[in-house]
């Protein structure tokens, strides 16, 4: 089928099998290796992308269902985005494999809950596995990012 994604703000037309998972299409057809598979069953969060504002496991989303939708990967998040900056400041990664999924999840979460408690942060990231075990610093990063985003709002 012909499928059009609004991918990171750019209209992207693809000739693909609509049953192919979005993860494979983004990696193999578009060449976005920032979107990464691990579990393949929607449980680990490394393949997270944002589809029409919702964090989505791209490993279990047939690309046909994303037709015409806004899809954001980590490339769609500017490099001075507070969440990205906070992850760097807090050293919230080791191998970095889980990081794009973590940042996208945190990004969407902070949009909804700008002033989260520690428990809410953990709850929001419960579906993102980091086998390197960077969770302590990931939680630090999300707290830091929340503060930065609130400051931005006050300034604006």
């Amino acid at each position: 089928m012909n499928c059009t994604l609004h991918l990171n703000g750019t209209e992207t037309a693809l000739g693909v099998d609509g049953k192919d998972m979005l993860l494979n299409v983004l990696r193999d057809e578009v060449g976005l290796t920032s979107v990464r598979g691990t579990c393949g069953i929607g449980l680990c969060g490394t393949c997270t992308v944002i589809v029409d504002g919702q964090t989505t496991a791209s490993c279990i989303l047939p690309v046909g269902l994303a037709d015409g939708k806004e899809v954001t990967t980590i490339e769609g998040v500017p490099s001075d985005d507070p969440v990205k900056v906070a992850f760097e400041k807090a050293n919230a990664f080791q191998c970095g494999y889980c990081t794009p999924g973590m940042i996208l999840t945190a990004r969407a979460f902070l949009d909804e809950n700008p002033d989260p408690t520690d428990d809410e942060i953990a709850e929001a990231l419960a579906g993102n596995i980091c086998r390197c075990g960077c969770y302590v610093k990931i939680a630090d990063a999300v707290r830091l990012a929340a503060g930065m985003l609130r400051d931005e709002k006050v300034a604006a």
Binding site: K84, E88, C95, G96, P100, I103
Partner: peptide, 16 residues
């Protein structure tokens, strides 16, 4: 300089 890990640009063995 942005860290290639936060920007997702780091390429792993599976990306070769």
């Amino acid at each position: 300089m942005a860290d290639p890990r936060s920007g997702g640009s780091l390429r792993y063995s599976q990306d070769v």
